[in-house]
Computed example of a mutant assay.
Amino acid sequence: MKVNNPTSLQEDFSALLQSEIDESRCLLDILLREHKLLQGASSAPLEQLTAEKQQQMAVLEAAVVKHNRLLLNLDLQPNREGSEQLLQQLPEADSARQLWEEFEQLIETCQKQNDVNGDILSLNQRQVSQAIDILRGVTTGQKTYGPSGESRPDNHSNSFGKA
């Protein structure tokens, strides 16, 4: 990799990293608000927040595409190793390295928070499913599995009533 203007490249790379950091912080904020809503009872604001999260993911993805395009233009792989190689080639990469490390940490935090939120959502869905099964009179022992692995009640049940 031969860099014609390392100072300009360093500034461009730092600006891209700062953009990714800003977008990651926005995503983390959304994930934390989602977590708070998942712990509550209302689902209406959750739908709006899910749409906001999807939009923020698209904005963050666009920032990462710019980052990867820069790496490809420098004949580097569009991944973590390519970014590390670029940082090694920059003359004074301390500030860019700090931005890179902050971005990596934010992405990891976002992933962990998203996993926690997904676990809460799964638990909530299981609890609702169990409540519905109880109302239908289906016990856990009466459940079977369909061809694609989904759980389903047996054909006979002890339901409390029919609507």
Score class of each variant (00 low, 15 high):
87 L>W: 09
97 R>H: 08
72 L>D: 09
85 Q>I: 03
90 L>H: 04
86 L>K: 06
89 Q>R: 15
69 R>T: 08
71 L>D: 01
90 L>I: 07
96 A>K: 01
78 P>G: 02
76 L>T: 06
70 L>I: 01
79 N>I: 05
103 F>V: 02
76 L>S: 03
91 P>E: 09
70 L>D: 13
67 H>R: 15
67 H>Q: 13
84 E>F: 02
68 N>L: 02
72 L>I: 10
95 S>I: 06
83 S>W: 01
93 A>K: 06
92 E>A: 11
97 R>P: 12
81 E>R: 06
95 S>K: 09
99 L>I: 02
96 A>V: 03
85 Q>G: 06
74 L>R: 08
95 S>E: 08
68 N>W: 09
79 N>D: 00
85 Q>T: 07
74 L>D: 00
72 L>N: 07
72 L>K: 14
74 L>W: 10
68 N>P: 11
103 F>S: 06
70 L>H: 10
93 A>Q: 05
100 W>S: 02
89 Q>K: 13
77 Q>W: 12
73 N>V: 05
68 N>Y: 13
83 S>C: 03
95 S>W: 05
82 G>W: 00
88 Q>G: 07
69 R>E: 06
74 L>P: 08
93 A>G: 13
96 A>S: 05
82 G>T: 01
102 E>D: 15
93 A>V: 05
81 E>M: 10
80 R>K: 06
84 E>C: 04
71 L>R: 11
90 L>K: 11
75 D>R: 10
71 L>W: 02
97 R>I: 15
95 S>N: 14
103 F>W: 11
93 A>H: 12
87 L>V: 02
86 L>E: 03
81 E>I: 12
90 L>N: 00
81 E>G: 01
75 D>P: 14
100 W>F: 10
99 L>C: 09
78 P>T: 02
71 L>G: 05
72 L>R: 14
92 E>P: 15
102 E>R: 09
73 N>Y: 05
85 Q>V: 04
70 L>F: 11
67 H>G: 11
98 Q>C: 15
95 S>D: 10
84 E>S: 09
83 S>T: 00
